[in-house]
Write a protein that binds this DNA or RNA. Structure first.
Lengths: 133, 133
DNA sequence: ATAGGGCTTCCAGTCACTGGAAGGTCAAGA
DNA sequence: TCTTGACCTTCCAGTGACTGGAAGCCCTAT
C-alpha cells in the first residue's frame, strides 16, 4: 500500500506519516522503486497513533503506548499510569483555560465596544485587577 | 533600569524581554555601556504584555492591543473585536479539551490497571469507539 | 587585582508537524 | 513511443514563543 492510501486509511496526512517514520514510530517496507509499502499492521499502528494523538497524548506517550500495545504481556497498570498522567494534564489545562475565559469574559462584558476610546479591557490589562490573573 | 529590574517589575523573564525587543514589541534605550535602560513606560508596557499573554493572547494580538493601548483616540470596538475573537478561540479549546477528557476518562475508568494484559484503553485506541473521537 | 555577578550577542533546541523545492516513477492516453 | 500529470522521494526551512547555553564584556566590592 502506498503512502497516500495509508494516509487515507489511517486519517493521517502523508507528511505526518513520513515524519513518524523519521522518528521511528513506524517502519514500513520499501518497494524496489524506493516507495514506502505499508502493510495492514503498519496501517493499524498508524490508526492507533492517530487516535492517541487525537486524545492529546504526546509523541513520547504515543511511543510508550504503542510499545505496550504491541507487547501482549504488558501490565494494564502501565497503560493506565500513562493515561492517568495525561488525564491530569488535560484537567489542569482545562482549569487554566477556564480561568482565562472567566477573566477575559468579564473584561469583554464590561466594554461597550463602540467608537469611544474608553475601554475597560485595556484598562484591565494595563492596571491589574479584573479577576485575579 | 536594568533588565533584571524590569523583569522583576513586569513579571517577565529577562530572556523574554530581550525576545520582545527582538520582535519590536518594546524599544528600551541603551546606556553608554550597551546595557538596556528601561523607562517607567517601558516597564508599564511590559506589564501590559505580561498580562495580555497571561490571558492567552497571541503575540500578534498583543501587538495590536499594545498599539490600541497607546493610541488614546482608539475606538473601544476595535479592542473588543480582538478580545471577542480570542475569547471564542479559548471557548473552542475548552470544548476540544473537554471532549478529550471525557473520552479519556471513560477509557481510564474502564481499565482495572493491574498486572494483567487486558486493557480497554489500548483496545479503545486500537479499535475505535470509546466516545466519538 | 581579582572574583562574582550581571550584562551583551548569537546559535541551537523545543514540539509536532507543514510547506516547498528539486527530482525520480508510474499509468493512461494520443 | 512519447507525453502528461499524478504520484512518490529527499532535504531544508519555518511555525510560536520562548529557553538554554556559550563566549565574552562590564561593574562593584574586597
Amino acid at each position: 500500500m502506498n503512502i497516500s492510501d495509508a494516509a487515507q486509511a489511517s486519517g493521517l496526512p502523508p507528511k505526518t506519516i513520513r515524519y513518524y517514520e523519521d522518528i521511528d514510530l513506524v517502519k514500513p517496507d520499501r518497494g524496489a522503486n524506493g516507495y514506502r509499502d505499508f502493510s495492514d499492521v503498519d496501517v493499524h499502528n498508524l490508526t492507533f497513533l492517530a487516535r492517541s494523538r487525537a486524545l492529546g497524548f504526546s509523541i513520547d506517550d504515543c511511543r510508550k503506548l504503542l510499545a505496550l500495545y504491541q507487547d501482549k504481556s504488558r501490565a494494564s497498570g502501565e497503560v493506565k499510569k500513562v493515561a492517568e498522567g495525561h488525564l491530569a494534564e488535560i484537567e489542569a489545562k482545562i482549569a487554566d483555560l477556564t480561568a482565562m475565559r472567566d477573566a477575559l469574559a468579564h473584561l469583554v462584558h464590561c466594554c461597550h465596544g463602540d467608537d469611544r476610546p474608553e475601554c475597560p479591557i485595556l484598562e484591565g490589562l494595563g492596571t491589574r485587577r479584573a479577576g485575579q490573573m
